[in-house]
Design a protein around this nucleic acid. Structure first.
Lengths: 140, 140
DNA sequence: CAGTATCCGATCGGATACTG
DNA sequence: CAGTATCCGATCGGATACTG
């Protein structure tokens, strides 16, 4: 059925100027679920300056629960963005570090971060205007 | 209490090389919840090539429910990223269009998109390696 | 056409207690 | 120290029916 699927796509290449196929969008959205996740970004940001131990991360990423820290790190490790190194000492020590792939992610995240810092004022203004417009709408 | 808050921050400026304060990170994370949202990105991408009506968006962003389309558009409008224009005809017509601010968002999203397309192969490989490593771990 | 309202299962994610 | 396991309320988000 994979073959049948391929036959249908008779004109695979150019879709339109700047347009993106449905499948590509879905893949994009799926990856975004990981990359765009709040804790993921905070953890990657924390590891940007060098490797950290589990507890150091827990302290640095304020507000994260053990559960979310562990789960998010597992996801990052699975995606090859973070490496996990166990030192079999007593007490045990585990270091987390960005992989080469993980370090490349810092660039687009920094771009996003820059956009946010540059436009957060405008967004705050827009929200206020929106709130006022909403408040003035009902007539009573 | 806002004043008291300010007095505490006696050394506001430089935090460290590349470091970001806790509050900044939180704001970053909060904005990410909007910007990094799956439907938000898909809608902004759909509107990148020009304004669309509600139903056109519904068709273009495959798989979105009316509920999520409406809610996400409201959020984007609230943040000033999308404008909503109502034509009081019968039947009604409503156009959604990226604002100037919304159009600036395309740049960082394109950067992220580029990163994903460039590295999705590596991520897929990493996932496979991880899955195999997991499968080989238990000894039975 | 462009929504709104309601219901309701699924996932998220914190809190807490326990473990190699 | 670096987790795992369990519980459980909160939010997410689809499906469906209805409306100006």
């Amino acid at each position: 059925m994979d073959a049948a699927h391929k036959i249908v796509r008779t004109e695979p290449a150019v879709i339109a100027e700047g347009e993106v196929s449905h499948e590509e969008c879905r893949g994009f959205a799926d990856m975004l679920a990981r990359i765009g996740d709040k804790w993921t970004v905070l953890i990657v940001g924390s590891l940007a300056s060098g490797p950290l131990r589990y507890k150091e991360l827990h302290r640095k990423v304020e507000g994260i629960s053990q559960r979310m820290l562990t789960l998010t790190l597992k996801g990052l490790e699975e995606d090859g963005l973070v490496s996990r190194t166990v030192y079999p000492t007593i007490p045990p020590r585990v270091d987390y570090e960005l992989t080469e792939l993980g370090r490349t992610l810092i660039v687009p995240l920094a771009t996003l971060y820059k956009w946010m810092t540059e436009h957060k004022g405008e967004i705050a203004d827009a929200r206020q205007r929106y709130a006022e417009a909403q408040a003035n709408k009902p007539m009573w």
